[in-house]
Design a protein around this nucleic acid. Sequence first.
DNA 1: TCATTAAGTATGC
DNA 2: GCATACTTAATGA
Length: 231
Amino acid sequence: MPRLDESLLTGLPPFSRLGRDQIREILDQAASRRYDEGTAIFEEGFEADRFYLLLDGYLRVVRTTEGGEQIIVLHISPGQLFGIAPALQRNTYPATAVAAAESLALSWPVGLWERFTREYEGFATESYRTLGQRLGQIQDTLTEMATQAVEQRVASAVLRMANQSGRKTDEGIEIAFPVTRQNISDMTGTTLHTVSRLLSRWEKDGVVRSTRKHIVVTDPHRLVLLSDPQG
DNA sequence: TCATTAAGTATGC
DNA sequence: GCATACTTAATGA
């Protein structure tokens, strides 16, 4: 395995307080792997033998119901830790992580978790901050699901992806990874047909522009209004 | 208001 | 040319 460059981790929150030598130590123990779009990094219920950091790409965190339907719980962006089951005192992964685009991740054996939190200043704090933020986001979507109409939920989901991964283009804010209507319906608890109809209408109204697996938010402000029940 | 069924077109390997 | 993505209309809970 090629030696990993220290610049991969410098500046990332979990490691920002560490010196060069410590970053070197951490990298020397890491495995680095590339994942094709659609590949699972790990699966729900399986033994959590490693924890991960996403260097490049985007992930969908997915849970499957008894009925076999998929629910997209959240997305992971570059620089974020994921699969941190040890922080939850778990020995199995609570969800499946799937590469939404071609992705690159580092990973370490769970056995190192305890040492990381003990020896690397800021690592524990950042991990729990990440968990807290995710819990907050999950709670938000949960309340949204229970209280808001479909159009508001879909608008929020699209905005969330645009905010998290959006890159600005002359057209507007472009979601940086491939998303299907089905994916969005898996995030919002509706059907792909309803999502398709909404996107078609929004496109006609000049709020978004979309082609297959690709969405650009051309009028973010209008979309924010659409996500608001008062509209 | 929204899911379901159904029947079609478009797109990309 | 085939699978996958997407669109649209009709129907009914």
